[in-house]
Write a protein that binds this DNA or RNA. Structure first.
Lengths: 227, 227
DNA sequence: ACAATCAGTTACAATTTGATACAGTGATGC
DNA sequence: GCATCACTGTATCAAATTGTAACTGATTGT
């Protein structure tokens, strides 16, 4: 049981989707490029595909009536996103940094028909997603602001960082507001925490969007124990 | 991308599970009863089954080294829990209130072999799980303490409540500490918030574990807008 | 019967985070 | 060139939540 926002049931007693019609073996799925700002789908759209990110960055968001927004996840290279609930997407999805994406038919996820190997791959991606989200729960609920920001930088660094001398550098294509809405903080708090990390000599910002990690060990500490 | 606690990859580039050996059609899965306090599995255990809750309440938890604990979810009747990541469970699972449970083989989730209908049902449960967890993100990150507690009571009420005159009543088999660790609060804050709801005439506690909702409308308001 | 323990509750102080306001910077457009 | 706008960073103050500690009532064991 989770505390869902609407009253829609999360129980297992909902009706099964009608079995899908047979489809001819899928042609080789093609990779397409999407520019920054492009919407891949909106909340409520019929979900025809799940998306595999090859390069670039996507952003999954949900918005409440009162304007409160949550960035559910960022889609980095290697991620598969857009898992549907029933027939519909339940988040919005935008491109944050120009992305190369492979779209897989939803039927490939739901039935093995035509491409059992990809079916398995997508199924396992969904299970891995559940596991990763469970970890993220702990982060949202049990970490302080500075731990959250440090953890975030560490995660991006591990996924997209490249070495520069003894240091590691990476870009943050998303805005401070996106980071705040992802971590459950305000922009001010995110900004404050970046400043502290700079003053402590742990990171350096070449531009607001370019991070240089000066002391990876300290960043790791900061992600686990509060200062 | 999520901010996972360890550095384990959440990317899609991990190796595929070896294809599973053929299994004879599953015999009718039997329902078993588990007493309060029983452990269904621990973090790291090999995952052989996923569990469908028929009656009772389960609790999924993760613990950090420093003692911080997160209750990931409660398993209420209708829920399917214990989705594995790779071969292993990534949470602990305990019985909070004596439960009747049907165990489904993991292979039924991962391959359709033997029981394609249950395979579909489990797959859809996993996708519904992802959606429900995304909603829960917003709750953990963007709701105040009182909104969280009200939302929680509302969710339990909707799932397990029974009418008593014009009111609704239900039991809370989990401790205040469990509720706090589920909502990302402290026990004191949970307790305080219960008291406020009582003083406002929204709920009444016959015992600390038995809730009577006196004003469902007000509880719904409290779950969405802070007082 | 009595002490010990534990869950829950309450009060108060301490701390963190959020809200507000404002300044600096770079991009865009007229 | 200059105004405008979006984004970022900083400081100050207010509000919410946590931490600490004390207290209650129920339960357990001796």
């Amino acid at each position: 049981m989770y505390v869902t926002l609407s009253s829609e049931s999360t129980a297992a007693n909902q009706t099964l989707a009608p079995s899908l019609v047979f489809q001819a073996p899928a042609p080789q799925q093609q990779q397409r490029s999407y520019a920054t700002g492009t919407h891949l789908f909106h909340e409520g759209d019929t979900a025809n595909h799940v998306y595999e990110v090859k390069t670039g960055v996507l952003r999954l968001t949900r918005v409440l009536e009162n304007g409160r927004r949550q960035v559910i996840a960022f889609g980095l290279p290697g991620d598969i996103i857009g898992f549907p609930n029933g027939d519909a997407h339940h988040t919005d999805c935008d491109v944050v940094a120009t992305a190369e994406i492979v779209a897989h038919r939803r039927s490939t996820l739901e039935t093995g028909a035509g491409d059992p190997e990809t079916h398995q791959r997508l199924l396992h991606a969904a299970l891995r997603e559940i596991s990763a989200m469970q970890d993220h729960f702990m982060m949202l609920a049990r970490k302080s602001a500075s731990e959250k920001v440090a953890s975030f930088l560490l995660a991006i660094s591990n996924r997209t960082g490249s070495p520069r001398g003894n240091f590691t550098t990476f870009s943050l294509p998303m805005s401070r507001a996106d980071i705040a809405d992802f971590l459950g903080l305000t922009v001010e708090t995110v900004s404050r925490t970046f400043s502290i990390l700079r003053k402590d000599g742990i990171i350096s910002l070449e531009t607001p969007q370019t991070v240089l990690v000066l002391d990876m060990e300290a960043l790791l500490d900061a992600s686990q124990t509060d200062d």
